[in-house]
Simulated assay, not measured.
Amino acid sequence: MFTPTIKHWAALEQILCYLKGAPRLGIVYRNNGHTRIECFANADWAGSKIDRRSTTGYCVFVGGNLVSWRSKKQNVVSRSSAESEYRAMARSTCEIMWIHHLLSEVGLKYPTPSKLWCDNQAALHIASNPVYHERTKHIEVDCHFIGEKIQENLISTSYVKTGEQLATS
């Protein structure tokens, strides 16, 4: 939206052509009585059999309506499930920040902090513990980033059972 390119225009045209061709189909957004932002973040540790890279998946809801989702292979190999989940949480936090900025730009109010749901207890412990240990040194930048956003009251992290996790990677 800030500096659109020809690729963005092509994507918009593709979406409009789809909508024109499917007038009876659509996405229904409902007024659920709130404007909370919630994000479900997940990763499949070493899921790729070829290079053992994990895949990040997240979905973001505003007011109970799905507004953003993504599934992408991580660009590094994670040495633990907590590391791959933590990288997914960091990427999801970036998306939450973008949505916050977008909503602010159009003048919409939203309550903070946004809820970031994760199904990995170790990753949540790292996020809530401001003391960094030698075992988390390889993800130290992500640790500082998420810790900073928690301190700024932009996000709060919570556990969700794996069976109730909406994000799939």
Rank of each mutant, 00 (worst) to 15 (best):
V141C: 06
L19S: 01
T168E: 14
R87L: 10
G21D: 10
G21W: 11
N153T: 13
T56Q: 03
P113H: 11
C94M: 10
Q14H: 13
G147Q: 15
M89Y: 04
F145V: 04
D44I: 01
M97S: 11
N31M: 03
H138K: 13
T162A: 14
Y132L: 14
Y86I: 05
C118H: 06
I99M: 14
K161M: 07
R135W: 02
S169G: 15
S169D: 15
F145I: 02
T93K: 02
S158V: 00
L116R: 04
N120G: 02
S71P: 01
G147F: 10
H133A: 09
N31V: 01
L16A: 04
S68K: 02
H100Y: 15
H125T: 11
W45G: 01
S71T: 15
W45F: 15
K149S: 02
I96K: 09
K161R: 14
N32T: 07
R36P: 00
Y86N: 00
L124I: 15
G63N: 05
R53E: 02
A123G: 01
D44E: 11
F40E: 02
E134G: 01
L12M: 12
S48H: 06
W45R: 02
R24S: 09
C59H: 05
H34T: 05
Q121R: 14
D51L: 12
V76C: 12
C94H: 12
P4G: 05
S104L: 13
V106Y: 13
S81D: 00
V141H: 10
A46D: 08
M1Y: 12
E105M: 08
E95L: 05
V106R: 08
T157R: 00
L102F: 15
W9F: 13
V28W: 11
K115Y: 00
R87C: 07
T93Y: 07
D51M: 11
K137Y: 04
G57N: 08
N32W: 12
S92K: 03
N75V: 03
N31R: 10
E134Q: 14
